[in-house]
Design a protein around this nucleic acid. Structure first.
Lengths: 402, 402
DNA sequence: CGCTATTTGTTCAGTGGTTGAATTATTTGA
DNA sequence: TCAAATAATTCAACCACTGAACAAATAGCG
């Protein structure tokens, strides 16, 4: 649009190439890849070096004659993102640098249900302060933070409803701001973004994977069942940011009543409580994650009730997922959250339902795989989204840092 | 990226503003709206005028002193799009100009099922030739064509499967090219694009509506049930272009078997055959569209069987649609194709299911409305997509036309 | 060891496109 | 009739990219 936009755009293009490359590319390679001249690339790279977004790295070994190239890589001492998570039975904080590496990482296990939102966020602020100190020690500058919450969040960061935490209309940024002051707004994005846990976990999975423009469905099996939808390498949030409510897809309309008011929703068959109850682990009153671990052990040992429970849940999940795949024509489904450790048993029935119900499965198969990231996928995804924002629009960061 | 991209981009920006405005804007208004200087806007507009994409129009009446402005509007004698459709019981052709007005329009009713693909396309070519002659008479230049087909189409325009037409692996562009020679490739887009009927109908609905960045689900109830998904003003095609297969969402997993291999799919409850059978119109052997009209008449007269059939179909449709709305967080559902005339009876049960099952419906309601366009929605949408492509990237057209 | 071919990265004049101010054009209102 | 106001154009300045020439640094070869 404006004249300077050209430079802004090229900064983003070149930085994106550096980020996407598997080995530090030279200026010449960048020129060849982007179609720009070497002169332009040099000028752009100079800006990026001056802004500490890029650093000269070990040149990639080369064969043949010629002046050796100097490799360019994302700076590991530049801006970084802070990722936070409040969930039913843990708090988490992590720091991710520009290159996507997790530089700091804490998980604090505790049942947060009996705790007030203010108290939970105060405890989270302690974790955040530790992460912040750690980041400073490593020379990183925190450029923003993202907080994952298992619930519905609006644009302003207000948690409208987090049923399994028992939260309703909690103004998170206001509660957290006092405890952990953050840097100022950048490009109109607030310093703390609050988002749904399933959304951020899907983003984490996206950036952990190799393909940068992937499309997939990331299903998080917790107490509720959430899905993050990634289309063409971008998270799809829906008109109001409340997409991904897969838990209430009808699986069996005459099934048991669900708290949403419907009947036979996916959640009543493949929610954590439903699976545990079917496996006979309902009364044990274990924390959710240990219960899941226990279930996986039982299934691994061949316990028939556990196997039956997982088969039933997998079939229900497969019915719902097949519908989504039919609708959106996705090629990959990721089993995340509580489903990840159970993937060996859930995968076969899910695949069976997909191949039964998805018309196009015959032409091109659908991949079903467990999530690559562990418990803190959402925190890592949130922190990653902060640095991705800088990579996508480096001009904003450069202007800010002088 | 490159230097000239700046001008290309600004051509698109200014042209887009002219297209989106409700009254012909002046250069000064465009400058204020885009943030560009009046000098730049003048230069850009000069290019657009020279390329016959824009024409000076009646200036918008103004109050107060000052030199009068000259209004700018999309040219009505520039490029236009040809829209074609082959469906089960009709052929259609239309011409849409840059401004989105339908300048030519023919529908030829005939049962195409007993006819070979080659013969059907030959007949379609006749309609196309008439449309072409009509366009030429009005001074329009056809910039490309889009053909809507009720089936799965791949990138090359090969119709993989159109079950209700009985087509399989029909190479449409090759068959149609001889009959109706079209202009050369522009920007790598072939002169004839073949696409799914539901997709193009959704595009037609998008451009017919006021909002330019709408998100909605367009459900076409024909023999099969297809859906076009519009997200943020853009059609979502899926990884391979096969999105929108809503007809096989499970509504009642223990229901009647479906030809897809599943059980109780939406199609077995809300497909045209299912509705007509439930209303007692199965044996009548009428063409599909007259049968639908007859059903609407019966329902209007209070026929109990017809009302029961529509209520049942509406509920099933509502279950499926509620799932989609939960998943994608859409705010609008459009009932199109064969559902449009039945909307008065389908809407209430669909709305009821949505408000029962969609969690966020309490905060912000979901609109369910009949399609604004009639039978030829897909043809009009296809023709519109051709001219939209020019509006989105005017530089390509300008380079082509000298 | 020295020369040449080769590749990388920088320098610099040239050009396209936008910018901002000044100028011209055209109307309303006093 | 003239001043104020708004629209559109003109023009020198500037910014960013382009292309070619050039400097830097290395491998290969005699």
């Amino acid at each position: 649009m404006r004249q300077g936009s050209l430079r802004e755009w090229n900064l983003a293009v070149v930085l994106g190439r550096i980020a996407a490359a598997d080995r530090p590319p030279s200026r010449a390679e960048l020129a060849a890849g982007t179609g720009l001249t070497r002169a332009t690339v040099s000028a752009v790279v100079e800006d990026l070096l001056a802004g500490r977004l890029v650093a000269e790295a070990e040149p990639t070994p080369r064969t043949g004659a010629g002046r050796p190239s100097r490799g360019l890589a994302l700076a590991t001492d530049g801006p970084a993102g802070l990722g936070l998570e409040v969930n039913v039975d843990y708090l988490a904080a992590c720091v991710v640098d520009l290159a996507g590496r997790v530089r700091h990482h804490t998980v604090h296990r505790a049942d947060l249900r009996p705790v007030s939102p203010a108290e939970a966020l105060a405890r989270l602020a302690e974790l955040a302060a530790r992460a912040r100190a750690d980041a400073a020690r490593e020379g990183l500058t925190l450029a923003g933070a993202a907080l994952a919450v298992p619930g519905l969040v609006d644009d302003a960061g207000l948690v409208r409803l987090a049923p399994n935490l028992g939260w309703r209309d909690v103004p998170v940024p206001a509660l957290l701001a006092e405890e952990a002051p953050l840097t100022a707004h950048v490009d109109g994005v607030p310093p703390l973004v609050v988002d749904n846990e399933a959304n951020l976990a899907a983003l984490g999975e996206l950036h952990a994977g190799p393909a940068d423009r992937a499309s997939f469905l990331h299903v998080s099996g917790e107490v509720g069942i959430g899905a993050g939808i990634v289309l063409d390498g971008a998270l799809f949030r829906g008109t109001r940011g409340w997409s991904g409510e897969i838990g209430h897809l009808p699986v069996r309309p005459d099934g048991p009543p669900c708290r949403c008011g419907g009947q036979g929703c996916l959640e009543t068959y493949a929610g954590q409580e439903a699976i545990l109850a079917a496996a006979g682990l309902a009364g044990a009153d274990l924390p959710a994650d240990t219960a899941t671990t226990r279930l996986a052990e039982l299934a691994g040992a061949g316990d028939p009730a556990a196997l039956r429970a997982l088969a039933g849940a997998g079939t229900a999940l497969g019915v719902a997922v097949a519908g989504v795949v039919n609708l959106l024509d996705l090629d990959t489904v990721v089993l995340g959250g509580g489903y990840a450790p159970l993937a060996p048993w859930l995968r076969p029935p899910v695949l069976a339902e997909i191949s039964r119900r998805v018309l196009t499965a015959a032409w091109s198969p659908v991949t079903v795989r467990p999530a690559a990231l562990g418990v803190t996928a959402a925190a890592v995804g949130g922190a990653g989204s902060v640095v991705r924002r800088i990579l996508a629009r480096p001009a904003g960061w450069l202007a800010r840092s002088g």
